[in-house]
Design a protein around this nucleic acid. Structure first.
Lengths: 339, 339
DNA sequence: ACGCACGATGTTGACGTGAACATCCCCGTG
DNA sequence: CACGGGGATGTTCACGTCAACATCGTGCGT
């Protein structure tokens, strides 16, 4: 049985308590607490000792009230079930922690107008100094009227027009590399297994695929479309397996996983009969059967730049515009070969 | 170009501003803001109008300072790269949002003592009313001295002794079901591809596997061990492929993925030659080749109970002890068959 | 030896909110 | 018609911190 304060509500130790114990004024405690200079070593020691004895922890509410800063960044996102979002979030949290900022996560349950509005309303009441948005453009558009106007914003993985700065993976360059890799192996053309049409990332990948084929003077086959999930990749893959496609560029690794299974079940082996390239480079991609050739996204860099973006806005009180693109690179494994 | 306040630092609207505009006292604004009764409709309307015109948003720092509550729950976890953690976090965030609580994520960079201490120190200064821990037991043990004593804590997915209440998936029952399923199909015994030995979940799954075999009077083969990753599953799977094992229980789905590839490459097809059961039921499991039979974890329920647990502690000022187990269920797909 | 300057510490007040208490006014009742 | 009661609204104050200013004392220069 734990021996904790049995009274239930423990009243917190304040600066005044520490000051009394140490025999100094609370201002001196404040100075010690914030590492200000101008406190004699012996005094500082007394104060630190009193803090330790009393278990003093600064009250962040009072601090925030006084300073107007919470040292917290809010992240609004649709769901934590998408790999990309999670990895970006992870990177954001790590970068923010390095800067002494905490991350508050606001999940938007449903990708509906109401859901987004709800999240923004909650965010408005929230204790955050800045907001990072991980979501699709059209919902942002409709909801942006509710974005608090006095809070820096950075948008990741979407298109904010010129309203907010955007940090994004270079979807176009990544897709181009993937398609060119397949063409370079000798494939006549490349089929695309696209993501959902509401997704901005999916659109950009699809556009780049089409443009690359056109520029190479190749035939542009009809688009197949999934919803990012491996299950949808499998389903759509069954259709693709019935065509004479020899190379497929899947808009993400999960769909590539489902696609490969569909192809295998139809007797078309990867990469002997069909080459497949994915996008994301999820950690498991190396363990797929066969190990997946895919476009690696640098989520850590995206996260770093998002955090740097809002911090800069906080420091400058300016609103930078424009798009920051983070480079990708093709990771060649065993799912591609000459036709 | 956005037309936002060009002065840089925008001074926020306070209750006093709204009160002046509406021609009432700030206390009346407070009452309207908090939905208190005893405000006449016409007055309420005036206040709401003034709030709208001025774009008033309550200052959460002042609110928190006054009320002593942040309406925020902190979640400490090692990394967002583990599927289980992320899904639990997602569930926690959703449940918390439903209760009007926000989630602050504190990632612990390295699973070292310093890393953990850093997180706790930061957490101590953080604006949270409660803490949910998603981490392994031994690190918690070493670090717990730094846990603020006046904050409710719930531990998920670990073992807190009797110090804190624990919410966990019923690892033992899930593993037992998996092993029994394989034995029921006629396999003589079951090989276990365990998780890392530091992991509490991995230990429990391994223990249950061993106990189930013993109880059934079967031979207990040596344990193979991975680190949760698909890559490690592949590596260890190559060893397993050289044995005469006919049934493998993998401690998670990702390792099962790697294992299946290793078996296939060694010419041993799943499920014809070897049956494989996973643990987690990740969304992709249905798209594995073959679709994976696995133990489904109810992360949503774990998240709900974690949140309910800390909220109850906040309400009661009591520290409940003991372990809450969340049931699992076996999802039979195509990776298991009679030997 | 005197005074001044500067370094160490103390005092005061304000940040925005909301509980507790005070006041005011209207209406009903004796 | 006076008075009491109760509902609506206003006033005061404290929450914990920290910046700005005030004060105190010591040491150094002349």
């Amino acid at each position: 049985m734990a021996d904790r304060s049995p009274t239930g509500r423990p009243q917190r130790v304040s600066m005044a308590d520490v000051a009394r114990r140490a025999g100094v004024s609370s201002q001196t405690v404040s100075r010690v607490s914030n590492g200000h200079p101008g406190v004699v070593d012996t005094t500082r020691e007394q104060v630190l000792a009193a803090m330790r004895e009393l278990g003093y922890r600064p009250n962040s509410a009072a601090r925030a009230l006084r300073s107007g800063r919470f040292r917290t960044i809010g992240v609004i996102l649709f769901s934590l079930s998408s790999t990309g979002n999670v990895r970006t979030l992870d990177a954001i949290a790590t970068s923010a922690a390095a800067e002494g900022y905490a991350i508050t996560v606001i999940p938007v349950e449903a990708p509906t107008q109401d859901g987004v509005n709800g999240a923004f309303t909650r965010m408005g009441e929230l204790a955050v100094d800045a907001v990072i948005l991980l979501m699709e453009v059209h919902l942002l558009d409709a909801a942006s009227i509710l974005l608090p106007t006095d809070v820096p914003v950075v948008v990741a993985d979407s298109d904010a027009g010129d309203r907010y700065p955007v940090v994004d993976t270079d979807q176009a360059a990544g897709s181009r590399t993937a398609v060119q890799h397949l063409l370079g192996l000798g494939h006549r053309t490349v089929v695309h297994l696209a993501g959902p049409s509401e997704s901005f990332a999916a659109q950009r990948r699809e556009d780049a695929w089409r443009r690359t084929l056109r520029e190479a003077g190749r035939e542009v086959p009809p688009v197949y479309r999934g919803d990012w999930s491996a299950a949808s990749g499998y389903e759509v893959g069954q259709e693709i397996a019935r065509t004479d496609a020899t190379a497929v560029f899947a808009a993400n690794d999960q769909m590539a996983l489902g696609l490969i299974r569909a192809l295998a079940e139809a007797g078309r082996e990867v990469p002997q009969d069909v080459s497949v390239v994915g996008f994301d480079d999820v950690p498991d991609a190396v363990a797929f059967r066969p190990p997946l050739t895919t476009v690696h996204q640098d989520f850590a860099e995206v996260g770093r730049r998002c955090v740097a973006g809002v911090l800069r806005q906080m420091a400058d009180h300016t609103i930078p515009h424009g798009r920051t693109l983070v480079a990708t690179r093709l990771v060649e494994r065993a799912s591609t070969a000459a036709p």
